[in-house]
Design a binder for these strands. Structure first.
Lengths: 107, 107
DNA sequence: CCCGTTGGTAAGCCGTAGCTTACCGTTCGT
DNA sequence: ACGAACGGTAAGCTACGGCTTACCAACGGG
């Protein structure tokens, strides 16, 4: 609640690799090396992506010995979901405003 | 349901200008010129963004005379929302899996 | 019937996002 | 205490995404 958002969650999800990371972490928390082993990019690349995701509040990390375990942050995901809900409800209002016009061509 | 997704909705929302367009269209449907008048980019730029959003299934367009009115597509928005819901629920499972380890340092 | 309005497309420029390799700090095992 | 494992950072290259200007097609009003 009292957290700044240095990076936008949407920008963070704009990259396919980062979405793959999110999908991986959705299954279970993983260390950086595990993620790099699965993904088609190098470990430093994963590290950089994780930084972006962390700044966006989508993941949290936890040091376990020499390893660093990342996990999904449900709060961050929920925040984006709420935004979509807002767009969705407003879109419905927009639909109500302009009733069907028969002389127009649908896309 | 039976629609392909030529472009990914997340990629589409990865751009700030496109998110601004989405926000605009969430209020009410608008023509291309209207959007360009509000946004800080040229009309062709808006047109290109609208194409991406349309390919992603996030907006639909409707020809009205010489004008072309775009509106938000609630189905497309709902699809993304559902994906986030999936991530969210799986993340909760992940949290249950790994119980708190006191010797670790939180991020 | 012409002209103004509207908007999609082409061509091209430029910034930056993402990747790689190389390097360094930290932590644990033996 | 030394070395290996793990991971973050720096530097640099390349590709692509977004913007602009210029051009063209379509529809409508007077």
């Amino acid at each position: 609640m009292a957290s700044y958002r240095t990076e936008d969650g949407w920008d963070a999800l704009g990259d396919p690799t980062r979405r793959a990371i999110i999908a991986c972490l959705a299954e279970r928390p993983r260390a950086v090396g595990e993620l790099a082993a699965v993904l088609p990019v190098s470990r430093p690349a994963v590290s950089q992506h994780l930084r972006v995701l962390k700044d966006a509040g989508l993941v949290t990390d936890r040091t376990a010995g020499t390893r660093r375990v990342y996990r999904l942050n449900p709060a961050g995901v929920a925040a984006l979901r709420d935004q979509l809900d807002t767009y969705w409800s407003r879109a419905l209002d927009g639909f109500r405003d302009v009733t069907e016009r028969p002389d127009e061509e649908e896309s």
